[in-house]
Amino acid sequence: MPQMTLIQAINDALRTEMRRDPTVIVMGEDVGINGGVFRATENLYKEFGPDRSIDTPLAESGIVGCAIGMAVNGLKPVAEIQFDGFMPPAFDHIVSHAARLRWRSRGRFHLPLVIRVPYGGGIRALEHHSEAPEAYYVHTPGLKVVIPSSPYDAKGLLISAIRDPDPVIFFEPKRLYRAFRQEVPEGEYVIPLGKANIVQQGTDVTVISWGAMVRVCLQAMEQLGSVSVELLDLRTLAPLDIETVWNSVTKTGRAVIVQEAPRTCSLASELTALINERVLLQLQAPVARVTGYDTHMPYLSMEQYYLPDAGRVKKGIERVLGF
């Protein structure tokens, strides 16, 4: 089986799906000739030509707006927004249209649309290039939100996302793009949306995370040694696989949520609320949130202080254990 980085797995998923299904197209800024600024769409232009690997003008609202029209009329666009920080110009089309069309047309129209976005911090990028905006989209009814944490997952989830009949926001932790390689099967396979992955079974505490933070959690677990941690990688943030979360916390009685986004009104808040709602009696300690701070992501000289690291995760775990 070939070894791939996460970015190669994404490229491979796109190629696989474009070969299989002639209605799949990729579009966005610099995705054609240049192969994407991170090379996620490398060589697709050569194989599929400019009609299916489309260099658009520089306009995010235009990209998503047109992709909606294409999806209504028989294509399956995979639109790239070049960086997380440039999703806001497309916000209107995402929340006011993509998210609502099936609902407001009573199922007459639906949007098999994927919006791919390099996501999150840790690559020492410029401002507006390291955002973790998942909460906006998780809060918006009608969207699915997916985020892989490994090459294998990236390919299987992206193929599922493309085949999904509803709009999917597909966040790609850019810090992991080239961080490591993994065996990735050739050809097609899917990882179902809406299913969390139990990365490691454990009994003392449940750690819930997604994207690049999953690796940080694994590091923390190594440092903790004897503590038995159950690590959940959510993989899909909307719809949430809350059963898996509840089952795990029922067993362990303790939960730590790790995310890079700001804390207030975030997905970590929602998970905390949901755990309290359903398994309060089993909780042996308050749920801990280990998160980015309620500030903007600092520029590169300070970003390491902002992003949760293994030490902070470890501290969070120790806090719930010591309650």
Binding site: Y293, D294, M302, Y305, Y306
Partner: peptide
């Protein structure tokens, strides 16, 4: 740089959540 730089200037006055988060980071 001082880590306080991350928290300063979000607002004219730092609200409680930022003060506490700064404290949390400093302790760490």
């Amino acid at each position: 740089r001082d880590v306080e730089d991350i928290f300063k200037y979000i607002y004219a006055e730092m609200p409680w959540n930022l003060r506490e988060q700064l404290q949390e980071l400093k302790e760490y």
